[in-house]
């Protein structure tokens, strides 16, 4: 790919904006490019990044999933409270949570693919359902983390100490999960026919069906995958925070969707990719985490998030409008005689 094509991409702009922003923060505070700040950033983007990867796939297929925080919370809360102390190994907790997530995702997928309802409204509905089950039936209160997950959560891959301030930051094992997930998703989306099917269905459903792709199956798969991932990420979140707090993922869906769109993933499907999603999340995390370094009160963080969402989506919306309005007649240079 040549340079001209690269500079035309949304990903390129986001990368430039991130770079400029980082340098600005560094100039202002002198604290941005310190080892503990970087580690802190990587740590706090771990969970949103994983969610974002799942959401990106749903968006590319032409859907949207607003229910993953609810799925994550419910699966996580179920395994952590109802299976507390049953296993000494974290694996069964993950597996059961993934299975629960898969089932909830399958419900989403079935309703969306079968009835062709707007995915946003369906998943807002199931989201309410899942959260209601967690809060109403399981009873949602803080709960101590089971020892197996606690052990996982305290496994660090890196500890960084700031020479000046003496502050230390640690990077947990979950960062590795995130990296693996990103690589696996990249592989799925770009190197497998299933990935191509997701793009095809998101690009033109009728053409996909005519080309022999299984549209219903692809939609089902994507929502099941999103659900299963949410189950996994829910347990990751609990073990990272070392406590079971059922309500602290609620509301993340909106930031995650916004991060994807910011990174060039189209809300109407078929367009975007993992690099964009990763950069979009990175930008959102860096901005909201750097407000303190910039001396802005944390009270402003929501305002900033809103502005980023609006500006970011406006840019891609304008590009989309231009693409739609573009005409394609090859006008001959000189009038024929």
């Amino acid at each position: 790919m040549n340079l001209k094509k690269i500079t035309k991409k949304t990903e390129f702009y986001i990368a430039v904006i991130i770079l400029v922003f980082c340098i600005l923060v560094q100039l202002r505070s002198g604290q941005f490019f310190t080892n503990n700040n970087i580690v802190d950033l990587l740590r706090s983007m771990t969970i949103p990044m994983m969610f974002c990867v799942g959401e990106m796939m749903v968006l590319i297929s032409g859907g949207v999933d607003c229910s993953f925080p609810a799925i994550a919370s419910l699966s996580m809360y179920f395994v952590c409270t109802r299976m507390d102390g049953m296993f000494g190994n974290p694996l069964p907790y993950f597996l059961v949570a993934i299975l629960l997530g898969l089932m909830m995702g399958a419900l989403n997928g079935f309703i969306v693919a079968k009835f062709k309802f707007p995915a946003m409204i369906v998943t807002l509905g199931t989201s309410s359902l899942f959260l209601g089950i967690m809060q109403g039936i399981l009873g949602s209160s803080e709960y101590p983390l089971t020892s197996a997950l606690n052990a996982l959560g305290t496994t660090k891959i890196l500890t960084a100490t700031n020479a000046q301030s003496g502050l230390t930051s640690e990077l947990p094992i979950h960062f590795v999960f995130m990296v693996i997930l990103i690589v696996a998703t990249w592989f799925l989306m770009n190197k497998t026919m299933l990935g191509r099917a997701i793009y095809a269905v998101g690009g033109d459903e009728v053409a996909a069906a005519r080309a022999g792709f299984n549209v219903f199956g692809t939609r089902m798969f994507i929502f099941c995958l999103s659900g299963a991932l949410a189950g996994f990420i829910g347990v990751c979140r609990a073990s990272m925070l070392l406590t079971v707090s059922p309500n602290n993922m609620i509301g993340m869906e909106m930031d995650v969707i916004a991060a994807c769109v910011l990174g060039g993933v189209s809300l109407v499907g078929g367009r975007g990719g993992i690099i964009g999603a990763v950069l979009g999340t990175a930008l959102m995390t860096i901005v909201s985490n750097s407000l303190i370094l910039l001396g802005v009160s944390t009270q402003w963080s929501r305002v900033f998030t809103g502005v980023i969402i609006i500006v970011g989506t406006a840019v891609s919306a304008i590009q989309e409008q231009r693409r739609k309005k573009k005409l394609f007649v090859t006008v001959s240079a000189k009038p024929e005689v």
Binding site: M254, I310, A317
Partner: peptide, 14 residues
């Protein structure tokens, strides 16, 4: 031309 969902999500935050 921002999709309504994203536009109002942004303004929600704002």
């Amino acid at each position: 031309g921002i999709p309504a969902m994203l536009a109002t999500l942004g303004t929600q935050s704002l």
